[in-house]
Design a protein around this nucleic acid. Structure first.
Lengths: 145, 145
DNA sequence: CCTTGACCTAAAGTCAAGTTCAGGTGCTAT
DNA sequence: ATAGCACCTGAACTTGACTTTAGGTCAAGG
């Protein structure tokens, strides 16, 4: 059993954020001792799932919905599974978008490296898009596709 | 040369967003004909960079700063390069975090698949964390590391 | 005894990134 | 000539996720 301060330390989250999550219903049935929140292993695992779902792009109220399903028991397994499938798909798509973003950033790093060597962008504007070095052209094409 | 409506179509962005970006200074020196914005190839490339930098986690005012550097000319190549290097690093880190998120989501998909077959989580709670199938244990371990 | 530190609440405040609103201009098709 | 678009502006509003504030409880240490 942990206090809110200990959990704040463990997860590097402000105490105010943990209280906010609690107020929003993200720890249904959390125990209290004379008003003071007691975080058990169950709440720590909930917090891990919260962080996962948040990073997957879910909003707080949708996470709350999930936590309610967990309380409801076995009858909501299908809903919970559908949720995780949907988030998995969303994150896989996000990874693809990020890969394109990364290729654009890498291209721009090369671009400004070259501009600094040349002292101008004149030669670069001649090269784009067809006379780029092969490796760089790959980045450019993926970023602009 | 394109109107704001055409650019809105091309980038699937609301017209109001394009006007907001303009007001925030993200298209310095954009042309106008009797009050009406004219988007040239320069603004379209700016928009591609804006979307890239936004996805990399940059705020609008930092993107504005970048656009101002572009106007200043060759003397700001080093700043611009540093910016792209920093964003590249940030996105690479974000990809790692997302990979862990994805492993957690894949683990949960398997988890609820299994729970649905069993009709309960009893067997699962016995298996976690040491008696999971090897492939699943990999996901679990990476997600919880 | 009284101060300090960790906990509590409800309510108000903040911030970024848009979106919406109210009112206005100007072309063109009926 | 008038209705309907696509464009314009400044200002107010919205949303989500926190954070801050103001005021209060309670146990331990000096």
């Amino acid at each position: 059993m942990y206090t809110i301060g200990q959990v704040s330390e463990m997860f590097s989250l402000p105490v105010s954020t943990l209280r906010y999550y609690d107020k929003e219903g993200l720890f249904p049935g959390m125990e209290r001792q004379s008003g003071i929140r007691k975080f058990s292993e169950r709440e720590l695992e909930a917090l891990r799932v919260i962080e996962c779902l948040k990073r997957s792009g879910l909003e707080i109220k949708e996470i709350k919905q999930f936590m309610e399903w967990c309380v409801e028991g076995a009858s909501t397994y299908p809903e919970r599974k559908k949720l995780f499938e949907a988030r998995r798909k969303a994150v896989e798509e996000e990874m693809l978008r990020l890969q394109k973003t990364l290729d654009m950033l890498r291209f721009k790093c090369w671009y400004y490296d070259t501009a600094m060597q040349d002292g101008s962008e004149d030669r670069l504007s001649e090269m784009i898009p067809d006379d780029l070095p092969p490796e760089i052209k790959k980045l450019y094409d993926n970023a602009h596709s």
